[in-house]
Design a protein around this nucleic acid. Structure first.
Lengths: 143, 143
DNA sequence: TGCGATTTAATCGTATGCGACTTAATTAGA
DNA sequence: TCTAATTAAGTCGCATACGATTAAATCGCA
């Protein structure tokens, strides 16, 4: 008998990720943010002025995913995309005032999510680290 | 300072799920299957003749996701979609001979994936169960 | 019995996400 | 120096995934 999805690790991961996405949506939708956009905003809030390649490595996304996503965020007025004067191939990303203000409005989001999980801070850190190890083993980060 | 994605549980889950997807792709692509299609096939191989609603509940997907996915699988000749004679609203899904043959060709996939994770069988079961609890807490299954 | 409420799929629009490929700029090496 | 290789983004096509809505069938209850 074939293994059914409810018994598979891959499905548990797949469906848990979707559930996390669903749990974030009501927290982010009032701010006009999607979940991947929130990750971009958080990454730039932690380190502004990142290049697209750097952001792509950090979020483990390809340029063909990030380019339209960033264009939408630029269209919303949250960041600017400028070519690096020193290397015209690179695009540098900088939050606008509106982007920084929006980032400040997201400070409570991680806490609200943590409460929804019902996990203790220790459990959250442990699970996060186990998943990071698994991810890095399955798909090492780009150099 | 805002929490950056690498420190977030949500990102660990999100990126681990994508890494799992990426790890399955080379196992499934030679069979002509995508990852969600593989889940459908596995679910029907375990219990053939499921209704769309039943499958949607099992895989935690909506009809607007499942309908086009199943139409593609029907187009590939792996299953049939027939209205239930007793209730014309329901669509019943049945594997074809080709679908069952394809399912048999996937029997090694879970083992190959398990090896890629580098986790022991016990660790896999533990992680799976932790994730299932988290998922069910964030997004309870439909009744 | 008959009609409003419910259930079930399907349709439409939008947003990821990636493989394959293209284009432009920079780098490296003969 | 001058071109081939490399790098960085972007374009295109396809496959999920979901919210909102619709259409059809069935159910429930007066």
């Amino acid at each position: 008998m074939a293994l059914a999805p409810p018994d598979m690790l891959c499905f548990a991961l797949h469906s848990a990720a979707q559930a996390v996405h669903a749990a974030y949506t009501p927290l982010l939708e009032p701010l006009g943010l999607t979940y991947p956009q929130y990750l971009v905003l958080a990454s730039l809030a932690a380190e502004d002025g990142q290049g697209m390649g750097q952001l792509a490595t950090a979020l483990r996304l390809e340029s063909n995913t990030l380019t339209p996503l960033l264009k939408r965020m630029e269209g919303a007025g949250w960041l600017t995309r400028r070519r690096d004067p020193a290397d015209d191939r690179k695009v540098r990303l900088t939050l606008t005032d509106a982007g920084r203000a929006l980032a400040r409005r997201t400070t409570d989001v991680p806490r609200a999510f943590a409460e929804k999980t019902g996990l203790s801070p220790d459990q959250i850190v442990d699970l996060r680290d186990v998943l990071a190890v698994l991810r890095n083993r399955l798909k090492p980060a780009k150099t």
